[in-house]
Amino acid sequence: MGYMLEIKNLHASVDGKAILKGIDLTIGPGEVHAIMGPNGSGKSTLAYVLTGREGYEVTEGQVLYQGRDLLAMSPEERAGEGVFLAFQYPVEIPGVPNTTFLKEALNAQRKHRGETPLDAMEFIKLIRRTIKDLGISDELLKRPVNVGFSGGEKKRNEILQMAILKPTLAVLDETDSGLDIDALKTVADGVNALRTPERSILVITHYQRLLDYIVPDRVHVLAQGRIARSGGKELALELERTGYAAFADAAA
């Protein structure tokens, strides 16, 4: 006991095609792990399996979250239990104001945990404080969710949601892709602010750059649907020099 997340021999397929082929990974409370790997190695599939997206079929293995069967829960239950995914491609929802969305989400999670919902005033106070801390313009709040947002704004909006929802396990799926250095720092600050001994973070990335700002405890290389190598933060730097070619070959 005591693990935040235990992934045991996880196999998953999409449209009948095997993508994850036996992943073993254990994350303890308070730890930050990074998963790196070439395109097509299964990084996003892992993120979606952990959050319960339709069409991602687990064919073998087990995932325990705080000792409980994560895969048996619906996406909304997982979220209510504290699992959060920062999407690689945040979805646009026309007609739904960002603030309304955040309030619905927060209060749905509070309800799930048996807490009273925040009223409008309490929520506005929380959100004002949070956007100030993150340096996000309040103009983003009024617009429909992600509609007309730039790539950087979408990623900041994911971090805003994370900061409001305060997950116990945050999975960041290539949150750094397409970001300039300022946006990257905002994202990193948001993640680092969440680092406590009770929370765990799984950072999925293609590049080492983000890991300069979010320093991981462990780094894993995902190749061909398996963890090909694990190490400390120095492994990320090594990958930056050597690239992924060696792993693609080794796993093939």
Binding site: P75, E76, V91
Partner: peptide, 10 residues
């Protein structure tokens, strides 16, 4: 899925 992944029931 995006809404559900944020905890909003289906």
């Amino acid at each position: 899925f995006y809404l559900r992944a944020r905890g909003i029931p289906e």
